[in-house]
Structures are given as C-alpha cells and as structure tokens.
Amino acid sequence: MMSLLRLLSGRTASAPVARERLQILLAHERGLRGQPDLLGLLRSEILAVVSRHVVLDPDKVIVRMDRGKNVSTLEVDIEVPNAVERPMAMAAT
C-alpha cells in the first residue's frame, strides 16, 4: 500500500532514511555519553608531554578527530614558537 502510494505520488519515502540516520547517530552518541572527554584528555596529556621540552602556548595545541567509515584520523596541530627552549632543558644538556 505504501509503495503503491509512493509510486502514484512519484516521491520516495524519506522517513526510513531519517530513522536509519538517527539509529546510527544515537548508537554512537550514547556510547560517548558518560565517558571522559577523549579529545580533552588527549589534548591535556599531549600538552603536558611536549611542554616538558618546549615552551608552548596551550591555546596553540589543537587536537581533532575525524571519524570515517573504516578508519578515523587523529590530527594534532602544535604551534611551537621559534628558538625558545626551557632553561631546565638547557641545564640538562
């Protein structure tokens, strides 16, 4: 009946698309809920490690994640000011 109506009206039903998109999205979002913020955690640990050796502006550390179908990519972008080393690192050499 539904497909007959669809044929008559010449339109495809969009509700099944809506349902499928929601099911995929919500399965993903529910998984993230209640977990610690992964990107925030990565960012703060990367910042801690790198700033042991180089002086950094915390605002210039960008961590981004792109989710693909099969693989996801983690992009870390750290801006390092030129020729500024920490006195501690100097002393260690």
């Binding site: 009206s9 039903a13 099944p16 919500l26």
Partner: peptide, 16 residues
Amino acid sequence: RAARGEMLSIEDILEI
C-alpha cells in the same frame, strides 16, 4: 504524512 513515509512514525520514534 507518516503513513505515506514522509514523516517518522510513532513506532519509529518509540523504538529509537
């Protein structure tokens, strides 16, 4: 509209 597949149905929403 739900019957014509243009709108999420009650069943769809409750299932989700």
